[in-house]
Design a protein around this nucleic acid. Structure first.
Lengths: 199, 199
DNA sequence: CGGCGCTTCGAATGCTGTTCAAACCGCCGA
DNA sequence: TCGGCGGTTTGAACAGCATTCGAAGCGCCG
């Protein structure tokens, strides 16, 4: 058929991810249609699917991109020469949601919801989380080695701290009453004090 | 029109919930259609919606029912005369998923995924969780009062323990590598020892 | 016995993810 | 320069499903 509408080159991947993330944060994944996202980007919905394969794949790639954005910030604060305690606190603050509807965490909530039914999404989230875990373990090693932290087992401690942060994060992003980043950070700081510093 | 198919009375609510829960555990909510669920129950999909209003409402009611099933067990173990420490451990064991695909937790994962977009679901989950929280706070009060636990603040401690349990539970039910109820319980027990018992 | 309100069915409706045919375009080799 | 090829882009078709809703059915009550 004669193409009535003009062809438009795909938007840069960065812009696609940023727009997708904002839309998902605002409407939830179910509230975002490929057609609507395409309109926002000046692309067709079919064009988006040509590149990403499926809506769920788009979600996973968007999360991957989002997490990679944080990689720089996390590396900066983790490799600074502030005491390990401060860096660990900063790590937790960076990990936790900024508040209800935090776009990055909204992606995570959507991914968790799809993870059980998809080995591919599970593998993806494991890969993304691994980076956080490795960085945390490295920091814990440093703190223990320098004598700043008690002689905890870094791997095991990282698992527990990760669970605690996840457990606090989800109610924040979802907007449950009483849940907020300050409250959560207060708990985490107390926990870190009791577990790593108190003698 | 002349009704070709026979009318069938609705299945008891209990059976609807049990069947819905099993189907959701097996396929995820997205993989369960109202038509298919109706066929399993010998009802029409429209009939299910007549009673539940929407698929999301069915999910929330199923979770409510599921949690009420546990209410008895939780009350039994919490009001026993075993030491508070044992009862607290049993509480944690009951709270955590039994393993990947745990039906009860699968409902929770689905609810979390919809919570952000729905005030009604948020309110529902807060109500359901409140019971667990209250029971935990009561137990903590007992343990502190009897001198068995350190003088922690029960409300605050319950928030933190709840976060830790949630943070451990989700990877288990979703089936992430390395996550399992024994591992999680080990962590939780260690945490409880360090936070409540160790001097 | 008639009317009322609840129950039950299942197709219609509306919507959306995904597929796919077709047009378009740039590049490369003959 | 031209034809072929492969990637790009569109948007409708397709398939599926949540939800709505009209209509039939049924029990109960006055």
């Amino acid at each position: 058929m004669v193409r009535a509408s003009a062809r438009r080159p795909a938007r840069p991947r960065e812009e696609v991810f940023a727009t997708a993330m904002a839309a998902i944060a605002r409407h939830g994944l179910a509230g975002v249609t490929m057609a609507a996202l395409g309109r926002e980007l000046g692309m067709s919905g079919g064009h988006l699917l040509y590149y990403f394969g499926s809506k769920d794949q788009l979600l996973l790639e968007t999360l991957r991109w989002s997490e990679s954005q944080l990689g720089e910030r996390r590396r900066e604060l983790l490799t600074g020469d502030a005491p390990a305690t401060e860096r660990l606190r900063a790590f937790a603050a960076l990990y936790l949601p900024t508040g209800p509807g935090d776009p990055r965490w909204t992606l995570w909530v959507e991914v968790w919801g799809r993870s059980q039914a998809s080995e591919e999404i599970r593998a993806g989230q494991v890969e993304i989380e691994a980076v956080w875990r490795e960085d945390l373990v490295t920091l814990l090693h440093e703190g223990v080695a320098s004598g700043e932290f008690r002689a905890v087992e870094p791997e095991r401690f990282a698992v527990r701290l990760g669970a605690l942060l996840d457990g606090f994060g989800t109610p924040i992003v979802v907007g449950l009453p009483g849940a907020g980043p300050e409250v959560a950070l207060g708990h985490v700081e107390d926990y870190l004090y009791e577990a790593l510093l108190a003698r």
